[in-house]
């Protein structure tokens, strides 16, 4: 069975649609899955049909769930200085993290908002295709990684603020736990962005879509961008990954400000 035929059949069987993912990296991950499970495509499909846990595992292995605290520190410094300092406190500001994985980006953002005493005036929704990573995100419990603390310190050094890592995290040897006053804020929800038509109930002021669309081909990027665009208020901000840009023919809908994209009002 060919790679493309497998993806079609996997979609029909499970509702998870990877047909418009970037070929090269997806193909390589599927080869890895075949090796690790010692199954060919037919074998994977027959087991997926009867074994829910196995199905989840395959979805988890196909999708990329790597993430880090304050990935690209300068992006966070820019957000804080250029945008967050001027957010009004008397209205609710809505944030949507798409493809939030295990939630480290969500907590990075909440830490900055807390430094501005804004936790009472924000609504934070975080979604991912993959239900198992969302359990980790909700719990806010991670394996300690020095890179996280380095990024954290870099952000606050550049902001000229003296903030200790243990203000937000409890560390016990290799376990790192986000403090409960942060884990209580976001709502994590499983969501299949590719196959659901109206995935998000309310409009947002900030959308984080970082290093998610790099896994999609151009056709799917455009489809997702249009849907996200419709869920943004005029003037809302979109934050992409450091090496991402808007898909062709979407750039007229946003004003680019460094790594940030501000939604233009639609001119009909």
């Amino acid at each position: 069975m060919e790679f493309k035929a497998f993806l079609d059949e996997f979609k029909n069987q499970t509702g998870f649609d990877f047909c418009d993912y970037s070929d090269e990296s997806l193909n390589r991950r599927l080869i890895k899955i075949q090796k690790e499970t010692s199954l060919d495509y037919e074998g994977i499909l027959s087991r997926v049909a009867v074994d829910e846990k196995f199905k989840q595992k395959i979805v988890e292995d196909i999708t990329v769930n790597t993430t880090e605290l304050f990935r690209d520190p300068d992006v966070w410094v820019g957000l804080y200085k250029k945008l967050y300092c001027s957010i009004p406190r008397n209205v609710t500001t809505a944030f949507w993290h798409i493809g939030c994985s295990i939630g480290l980006e969500v907590y990075s953002n909440l830490i900055l908002l807390n430094e501005l005493n804004m936790l009472d005036s924000v609504r934070v929704m975080a979604t991912d295709l993959n239900s198992s990573v969302l359990e980790t995100a909700k719990a806010g419990v991670y394996v300690y990684n020095k890179q996280f603390e380095d990024n954290f310190n870099k952000v606050f050094m550049e902001l000229g603020k003296n903030v200790r890592f243990d203000k937000y995290f409890d560390r016990d040897k290799d376990t790192l736990k986000v403090k409960p006053f942060l884990t209580a804020v976001p709502k994590f929800k499983q969501q299949n962005l590719v196959s659901e038509d109206a995935p998000f109930p309310f409009k947002t002021d900030f959308v984080f879509l970082r290093n998610v669309m790099i896994y999609f081909n151009n056709k799917l990027q455009v489809k997702i961008m249009k849907m996200v665009y419709d869920k943004m208020y005029d003037g809302a901000y979109l934050i992409l990954g450091k090496q991402e840009r808007l898909p062709l023919n979407m750039s007229g809908r946003f004003e680019a400000i460094a790594n940030l994209y501000r939604k233009n009002a639609l001119n009909l």
Partner: peptide, 19 residues
């Protein structure tokens, strides 16, 4: 780019990955 894997697709475009 730093901290990304870089793939070249069959159509001659770049795909990046954080895996």
């Amino acid at each position: 780019p730093a901290n990304y894997h870089m793939f070249i697709e069959l159509d001659g475009t770049v795909s990046l990955s954080t895996e």
